[in-house]
């Protein structure tokens, strides 16, 4: 099972970080960042199958693939931003963490604006013509 691989890796990384932190806290932060990166790379490569099946499901029900693309993009932005935020919080820089989070929100909003505009267009086309 791949879950056990994940769990054992995380426990091993946690014990490594604790071991190194007793002697050098700066390198312990690097160890924890590298462990998080390895875990995230693993999870992202596992996720591509899920996203492929999601896209094919959307195609089967006739949903425009551009919207699914926007959704997938937003999920990716959220994962990367969450990773950076957690690292900054671990390093004790919660001000930086909240800035990164704000930046991620802005990026997600910018990615979602075309979908919102097309929703508004659709609502406007449903309304009877000649409304004030």
């Amino acid at each position: 099972m791949q879950v056990f691989q994940l769990v054992v890796f995380a426990l091993l990384a946690a014990s490594m970080v604790m071991l190194v932190r007793a002697y050098r806290p700066d390198i312990a932060l690097q160890v924890s960042i590298i462990a998080g990166l390895i875990l995230l790379i693993y999870i992202v490569t596992q996720m591509s199958g899920v996203l492929d099946s999601l896209t094919s499901l959307a195609e089967r029900y006739g949903i425009d693939s551009a919207y699914i693309g926007i959704l997938i993009k937003i999920i990716g932005i959220a994962y990367v931003v969450q990773f950076a935020t957690d690292i900054c919080k671990d390093a004790g820089e919660s001000a930086l963490a909240s800035k990164v989070e704000l930046g991620g929100r802005v990026m997600i909003l910018a990615a979602a604006v075309p979908a919102a505009i097309s929703l508004l267009d659709m609502v406007a086309s449903l309304l009877p013509v000649g409304m004030p």
Binding site: I33, I72, K73, I77
Partner: peptide
């Protein structure tokens, strides 16, 4: 020196992560 070696390894892995995220999420 130890810090810089760790940073170099970190930059390598971060490049890997960004590449795979870009491929999977079509960013």
């Amino acid at each position: 020196t130890g810090l810089v070696i760790g940073l170099l390894m970190m930059v390598d892995i971060i490049g890997d992560l960004f590449e795979s995220v870009r491929q999977v999420f079509q960013l």
